[in-house]
């Protein structure tokens, strides 16, 4: 079929719209001058400043702590939940509950959790952000794992059960290996979402040292400097690499599973 030629235009316009700001952002990070607006020559000095900025480094460490811990919780809970929902219940209500954190506006979840911690008289800190992030991460892990479960062949599981294996044995020996690529994809998704999450962390972090998105937010509120551009460029590089690597990994995983 003939491809409508005119459609090139909106596609490339979209690409320009999406990448032009990023390109400018990265270019300005190499600015030798003090301003983020006028380019005064090439320099790497802002990257140096960045590495010496304790706030940024500690923000990065805190973000990683939160992302790793919440992903760990969410991967376990989300995987179990996905299997339970796909194999052991037809309840639409349970389905909706499991999906809800993924569609609820972050502001609502952030405020609800803040009120919960206040009502329980809980001290806020990194632990509360971890618990909070695990809420939406669980939903995403469960959703990703489920798509694999619904597509998966159940005959192996049935055979295992027919041979007298209990549900737990079947899960560990048969279902889990089949699900591994889905679990990894879900965990990666949860990890990336937690790395970038701002609103919920903003409400539930209390007095603890801020995560990186919160650090960036307050840097921006206090003005525009090429140091933020340098930080942005590094983060862009990291997340682009991660996404492309993730894409490769799932492809390899899929082709293996198909073999």
């Amino acid at each position: 079929m003939r491809r409508p030629k005119l459609l090139h235009v909106p596609f490339w316009a979209t690409i320009v719209f999406l990448y032009l700001p990023i390109a400018v952002l990265v270019a300005m990070s190499f600015n030798a001058g003090e301003s983020a607006y006028t380019f005064e020559g090439f320099s790497l000095k802002w990257y140096g400043e960045l590495l010496a900025d304790e706030r940024v480094i500690s923000g990065l460490v805190n973000t990683l702590i939160v992302a790793v811990s919440s992903t760990a919780i969410a991967t376990v809970l989300g995987t179990l939940l996905a299997v339970g929902l796909a194999r052991y219940t037809r309840s639409k209500i349970l389905d909706a509950v499991a999906l809800m954190p993924a569609v609820l506006p972050d502001l609502v979840l952030g405020i609800g959790l803040l009120m919960l911690f206040i009502t329980l008289n809980q001290t806020l800190g990194h632990h509360s952000v971890i618990l909070a992030h695990a809420v939406f991460s669980t939903a995403f892990v469960a959703a990703v794992v489920r798509t694999r479960l619904t597509g998966a062949d159940t005959s192996l599981e049935e055979a295992s059960r027919d041979l007298g294996a209990g549900p737990v044995t079947t899960f560990v020996k048969v279902t889990l290996p089949q699900l591994t690529p889905g679990i990894i994809a879900g965990a990666l998704l949860a990890f990336t979402l937690s790395l970038d999450e701002f609103v919920i962390a903003f409400f539930t972090i209390g007095n603890a040292d801020p995560t990186l998105p919160i650090v960036i937010y307050s840097m921006i509120r206090f003005g525009v400097t090429p140091e933020i551009n340098a930080l942005a460029s590094i983060l862009l590089l990291v997340s682009f690499t991660a996404v492309i690597a993730g894409q490769r990994l799932t492809k390899i995983g899929e082709s293996r599973a198909q073999d």
Binding site: L18, P21, V24, L25, A36, F198, I216, I220, L231, S239
Partner: peptide
Amino acid sequence: LPFWTNFIIRIYAWIML
């Protein structure tokens, strides 16, 4: 791809522009 970069940073890019 741009969706996977930090949300706040994407906004910052527009402040610059």
